[in-house]
């Protein structure tokens, strides 16, 4: 799949922002006034910034409101609803915490759950696609949720929670990569089933429909950069998990905490790039490509 910057920025930043919102809704950290304002501002900047970035890849962003209509079948529509509800509920809760010195715990909990639901619905947009076996796995929502919770705990300054959550996310990441590498073969879709000609011999793509490229090849057959995938996995894993955990284990220091957040953010962004770049769409088979 084409790793469009808009979707990488969107899933990375929004995941982190809604993760932070989850902990703020639970009263972690227990802050009020201006300190709370800064925490909520960061969460909103990340979550809303990511959502705005996601509209950049639309052909007609001015019609984006129509996307709220099909929540009965479409995960993309459900994501829109969850995001708006999470932002509204958490916003009311934030007003109480920041300006009124009130902690409406029920409202906060609802905001937390909606924040997680937003991340889950985002992950389901990818997970539902049978055409992309590497995404069509239960580990995909597990990865999005575990990354969001680990990043959120890190940003919320919850050191004791962040270390185990980072370790869980790291484990999920390794499992995702291991299972993902087998997914296409396990799905059983080949050029033989794609053409229905497999029972009469070995099928080989002889001529593509056109000499030039097209939308399908640009969008679904992204092979450039896959050759560095192994190196990028190591870089991503080191930045997202290893370095932040090491920095958290050291005696607490604001500079280290900030470094841990930035390192985690960069690592997750690289992981997301790989999430798209390594994903292979079955339509590539028709072109003799992956």
């Amino acid at each position: 799949m084409h790793p469009a910057p808009s979707v990488i920025v969107f899933t990375t930043l929004s995941g982190l922002g809604f993760g932070l919102m989850f902990f703020l809704g639970l009263g972690l950290p227990d802050v009020s006034g201006w300190v709370a304002f800064v925490f909520f501002a960061v969460a909103y900047a990340l979550a809303v910034g990511g959502l705005l970035a996601s509209t950049f890849h639309l052909g007609h962003p001015e019609r984006a409101l129509k996307a709220f209509t099909q929540w009965k079948t479409s995960w993309l529509s459900r994501e829109g609803w969850c995001a708006v509800l999470a932002l509204m509920v958490t916003g009311l809760y934030a007003i109480g915490v920041i300006f009124l010195g009130q902690r409406w715990a029920g409202l906060g909990l609802l905001g937390s759950l909606l924040s997680l639901a937003t991340v889950f619905t985002t992950s389901m947009i990818y997970t539902q696609l049978k055409t992309i076996p590497r995404w069509n796995m239960k580990l995909t929502p597990a990865m999005f949720l575990s990354f969001s919770l680990a990043g959120g705990a890190l940003l919320a300054g919850q050191t004791t929670l962040a270390i185990p959550l980072l370790l869980i996310a790291a484990l999920v990441q390794i499992l995702y990569w291991r299972q993902g590498d087998q997914a296409f073969a396990n799905a059983g879709t080949t050029l033989a089933t794609a053409t229905g000609l497999g029972d009469r011999g070995t099928v080989r793509a002889f001529e593509p429909p056109h000499t030039g490229t097209n939308y399908l090849l640009r969008e679904f057959v992204h092979v450039v950069g896959r050759k560095h995938a192994e190196k990028l996995r190591v870089i991503s894993f080191g930045l997202a998990f290893v370095l932040p955990v090491l920095l958290l284990v050291l005696p607490f220091n604001h500079l280290f905490a900030a470094l841990a957040v930035l390192s985690h953010l960069a690592g997750v962004a690289v992981s997301r790039w790989l999430f798209f770049a390594q994903a292979e769409h079955v339509v590539g088979l028709y072109y003799g490509k992956r």
């Binding site: 639309l58 052909g59 962003p61 019609r63 996307a67 947009i125 055409t131 969008e219 679904f220």
Partner: peptide, 27 residues
């Protein structure tokens, strides 16, 4: 007139039957 050009339907189609028009921005 309702298409926002998100491209998700083309992602969901295994046959490559849908193409987002680069000029019109609709599927």
């Amino acid at each position: 007139s309702d298409c926002i050009g998100c491209g998700l339907c083309a992602w969901a189609c295994p046959y490559g039957a849908r193409e987002l028009d680069a000029a019109a921005g609709v599927m």
